[in-house]
Design a protein around this nucleic acid. Structure first.
Lengths: 349, 349
DNA sequence: TTGTACGCGTTATCAC
DNA sequence: GTGATAACGCGTACAA
C-alpha cells in the first residue's frame, strides 16, 4: 500500500505535438509529418527531428491521425465467450494483425442481444477499420448498414447469408459425416447426436453431417437419438441423461462441440458409467483436456491457426488501399483424430 | 464464393456529422452536442434532433470526441498468452468495463521484449485511457514515462516495485505454504517444487512459500528437489523427468502453475507412472481439466473473478475525474482445493 | 524539398 | 438553454 499520489486523475500533462517537434528541430510541420510516415527527407533535417523527438519525448497521436485518415488501426472482434477455441484463435489473430500494425478491440457478448448491439454501437463510434464476428442473425440490419458504410466484415464459425462480408468457415458437415461414419464402421447401430443450437449455421451443418452418414448406410433417423443442446456443458449433461435413460439407450454418441462433451463426461462420471465401455463418444472440437484424459477422446480438430490466418489475410488484403477484390468464402478442412473413446460394438453387449 | 464487390476498400462514404444534424434539425451544433451527451435540452429541439439523427442515420464519431477530451474509452491490456487464467480474466474484465462504456484493446506479447515495446508504443499512440499488465521488469523506464504522462497503470500477477501503479495480486506465498504443508501433513518427507520463472515476482513468492513450509517443520531444503521451469508445459515435462530420475525421487511435488502441471502429467503418463500412486501432486491454478480428471488434481484456486473485479474497480475509480486517491495494492486470497492427487505416505513405500 | 494554411468532427467557452 | 466560434493534433494541398 503506497500513499503517493498520481499527478491527476487521468489528466495528461500537455504532450509535445508535431508542431513542437518542428519548431525544436527548426523545420516545417510538414517535414516532420513526412518523416513520421517514413518518407524521404533531407539527412540533416532527419537528425534534427530525431533529436527533437527525443528531447521532447514526443509521442505520436494516433487519434488525431485517425481523424484525418479515417483509419484507426483497430479491428473490432465480437465473440460470444472466451472458451478454448476463441482463446486460441484470438491469440493467433492478435499476433498476426500486430505485424500489420493493428490491434484487436474485443467485446464479449455472451449471446446477449443487447450487448451485441452495444458492441456494434461502440465499434461504429470508434470507427474500427474492420469487424470480425461469429455470425449472429439478430443483427442483420445493423450489419448491412455497416457494410454499406464501408466497414469490412469477416464472419467466422457461423454465417449470416446475404451480407456482403468475407467468410472463414470449416467443413462442419463433412467432418461430422466422417466422425459419425467412424462410429458406424465400429458396428454401432444406435448412434445418437447431441446437436448444437440450430439457429447457428454450424449447429445445423453438424447435424446434417450426422444425418447424411446414417442415411448413406440406410439407417433411419430416430428422433429420440437427436437431442438439441445449447453448446454449453449443462445442456450436454442434460442431454446425456435424456439419452442414457431411454429404454434402448444409444451405444455411441456424436457430440457437436467441446462444451457439451464436458457435460456428457460429467454425467457419465456422476452415474458410474464409463467411456467407451458404456458409451462410445466422438466430439467436435479437440482440446487439451481430451488429449490428456485416459482414455483420450476421439475428436474433430478444427484448424484454429489456419482459421486465424485466413481471417487476418482477408482483413489485411481488404484494408489494402491498393486493390479491390471480390468477397471470398474460405472453407477449411478438419481432422478426425482417432483416440480411445470409442470401441467396436457387437450385439452381445 | 461470391463475386459481388464491396463499395471500395475500407473507404467510408462521407458520414453525417453533428453539423449536418444541427442543420437538418434547425438548431446549433452546440445544442446537438449537448443532446448527445445527455444534458438538458428544450423539448421541441430534442424531437427535431432525434428526427434528424434518424433521417441522416448519424453515428457518433468517438475519434473526434477523443481528440477533444483526450479520453478514448479504450483500456490497453498487455498479457503474455491466452491461457485459461487469462481467458477467464479477460472475459470478466471485458464484461465489467463494458458497463462503464469502455472496451479492451488487447496485445499478446509471448514474453517477447520487442513485442512488449511495440505494444506500449501502440497504446501510447492510441492514447488508451489506462493500461493493465502483468509486471514485466524489462520496460520499467517506459512505464515510468507513461505514469509521468498521466496514464494510470494496473499491475496484476507480477509486480514491478517502485512504479506508481495500482496493483492486484494474490497471496502467492501463503497459499503455496498451505499447499506444501498439506503434503507434509500427509507425512511426505521428500517434497519437491517445480518453480516458476524466478524473474517473475509470483514465481519467487511461490518458491518462498514452499521454502517457508519446509523450514517451519525443520526440513532442510534439498537443492535437488528445487527445479526452476518456464511456466510452460514442456518445462514441466522436463522437470518431472529430472526429478523422477533422481536416486531418491520425491514422493510429492508442488507445481507452481497449471501449464507445468500439464507437462508433469504427460511425463507421468508417458512413463507409466500414476498420480497419486507414484507421486503426490499439488498444483497452483485450478482449471477444468484438473476437476474432470480422475483422480482430480488438488490445486490452489485463484479468485479470477475477484481479480478482474478489483482491476476494473481500480481502473474506473482512477479514471473518475471527480476524485483523486492514493495508489492501492490489493492482495486476494486463494483456496487450496483438496482432491484426489495426493495420498498419505509411509516409509514402507 | 519547405513552409503555410486549412479541414477532419467534436467539445468547451463564451456571450446572448 | 442556445448559438457562434475557437480549439484539439495531424495530414495535405498549395505556393514558394
Amino acid at each position: 500500500m503506497s500513499d503517493e499520489d498520481l499527478p491527476q486523475n487521468g489528466t495528461r500533462r500537455r504532450a509535445a505535438t508535431i508542431a513542437d517537434v518542428a519548431e525544436a528541430a527548426g523545420v516545417a510541420i510538414g517535414t516532420v509529418s513526412r518523416f513520421l510516415n517514413g518518407r524521404e527527407i533531407r539527412r540533416g533535417n532527419r537528425e534534427q527531428i530525431e533529436a527533437a523527438i527525443e528531447k521532447l519525448s514526443y509521442r505520436r497521436n494516433a487519434v488525431a491521425a485517425a481523424m484525418k485518415t479515417d483509419k484507426t488501426h483497430m479491428i473490432g472482434l465480437l465473440i460470444p465467450t472466451f472458451d478454448e477455441f476463441h482463446s486460441d484463435m484470438v491469440e493467433h489473430l492478435a499476433r498476426l494483425l500486430r505485424t500489420s500494425g493493428r490491434a484487436l478491440v474485443i467485446y464479449c457478448h455472451s449471446h446477449d442481444a443487447r450487448v451485441i448491439n452495444d458492441a456494434l454501437d461502440f465499434f461504429d463510434a470508434q470507427r474500427v477499420d474492420a469487424l470480425i464476428m461469429d455470425g449472429v442473425a439478430e443483427v442483420r440490419a445493423r450489419l448491412e448498414q455497416m457494410t454499406a458504410d464501408g466497414v469490412p466484415i469477416v464472419f467466422y464459425n457461423n454465417d449470416i447469408p446475404g451480407i456482403a462480408a468475407d467468410r472463414v468457415m470449416v467443413e462442419n458437415s463433412s467432418a461430422s459425416y466422417r466422425a459419425v461414419s467412424h462410429l458406424l464402421d465400429l458396428r454401432h447401430e444406435r448412434v445418437a447426436i447431441i446437436a448444437g443450437a440450430q439457429y447457428d449455421s454450424s449447429g445445423r451443418q453438424r447435424l446434417e453431417g450426422y444425418e447424411a452418414a446414417l442415411h448413406d448406410r440406410g439407417i433411419p433417423i430416430d428422433p429420440a437419438y437427436v437431442v438439441e443442446g445449447t453448446w454449453r456443458p449443462d445442456s450436454g449433461y442434460d442431454a446425456a441423461r435424456q439419452l442414457m435413460q431411454l429404454d434402448k439407450p444409444p451405444t455411441a454418441v456424436f457430440v457437436s462441440n467441446y462444451g457439451m462433451t464436458i457435460g456428457v463426461l460429467e454425467w457419465m462420471r456422476d452415474n458410474g458409467l464409463r467411456v467407451p465401455d458404456d458409451l462410445s463418444l466422438v466430439s467436435f472440437d479437440d482440446v487439451a483436456l481430451f488429449r490428456l484424459r485416459e482414455p483420450a477422446i476421439t475428436a474433430i480438430s478444427q484448424p484454429i491457426a489456419a482459421i486465424a490466418e485466413s481471417i487476418a489475410t482477408l482483413i489485411v488484403s481488404r484494408l489494402d488501399p491498393g486493390k479491390s477484390r471480390p468477397l471470398r468464402s474460405v472453407v477449411l478442412k478438419c481432422d478426425v483424430i482417432l483416440r480411445g473413446s470409442t470401441r467396436r460394438w457387437s450385439p452381445a453387449d
